[in-house]
C-alpha cells in the first residue's frame, strides 16, 4: 500500500510540469496538421468540385446574372481536407492555423465572384470564364487547333446535345438493347 503510493508519487514527480502556459506560450501543431483551409482565389476555376466533396457543405456555389458566387463558410468546416484533395488546381491547402475564435462569424467566410459564361443560344449557364478558357487551352494543345476555334465550348450541354441529336440517328429504345 505505502510502496504503491510511493511509486505513484515517483511517477508524478519524475514527469515534472507538462502543461503549457497556453495561451501565453504557443502550442505548435505537428507537421501535416489539418488546420483552417487556405484559399488561393487566383487559382480558382469556379468548378465547384470542392463544394461537391465537402461533407459539411461549407462551400456554397450559386450563379448570379453575370457571375458565379463562391462562398467559403469555414465556420462550418470540419477540417477533413476533402476540398483540398478535390481541387484540380491546388487552390486550397490545409494550413496549420487553428486559433480561429472570433467575435464575428463573417471573419471565417470568404466570398469570391467569377465571371460566368452563358450559352450563346439559350442563355443557360455553361461555366465560368476561367473554366472555359482552361478547357479551350488544354483542348487546343491536345488537338493542335486554335483556342478560339471551338465555339461549341460556349454552348450549354443541352444545346450541344440538341445539335448532336439533330445530326445523329436516334435509336428507338428496343433497338438500343441490341
Amino acid at each position: 500500500m505505502i510502496t504503491s503510493k510511493l511509486k505513484e508519487a515517483l511517477i508524478c514527480f519524475r514527469a515534472g510540469r507538462v502543461t503549457l502556459r497556453y495561451p501565453f506560450e504557443p502550442s505548435v501543431p505537428p507537421e501535416g496538421f489539418r488546420g483552417q483551409p487556405q484559399l488561393d482565389i487566383t487559382k480558382c476555376l469556379g468548378c465547384g468540385a470542392c463544394s461537391m466533396a465537402c461533407p459539411t457543405r461549407c462551400i456554397e456555389v450559386t450563379n448570379e446574372a453575370e457571375q458565379r458566387r463562391m462562398e467559403y463558410c469555414f465556420d462550418r468546416c470540419s477540417y477533413c481536407g476533402e476540398c483540398a484533395e478535390a481541387c484540380p488546381e491546388g487552390g486550397i491547402t490545409m494550413s496549420s492555423e487553428f486559433e480561429l475564435a472570433t467575435d464575428s462569424v463573417t471573419d471565417l467566410r470568404t466570398v469570391a465572384y467569377l465571371d460566368l459564361v452563358r450559352c450563346e443560344s439559350c442563355g443557360e449557364v455553361v461555366g465560368t470564364a476561367r473554366e472555359i478558357d482552361k478547357l479551350a487551352q488544354e483542348l487546343a494543345t491536345k488537338m493542335n487547333v486554335a483556342a478560339d476555334s471551338m465555339p461549341w465550348l460556349r454552348w450549354c450541354a443541352r444545346c450541344k446535345r440538341e445539335s448532336s441529336l439533330a445530326t445523329a440517328q436516334v435509336l428507338q429504345p428496343a433497338e438500343a438493347h441490341l
Partner: peptide
C-alpha cells in the same frame, strides 16, 4: 496538488 498532477 498541481505539482503532483504534473501541471502548471
Amino acid at each position: 496538488r498541481a505539482r503532483i498532477h504534473s501541471r502548471e
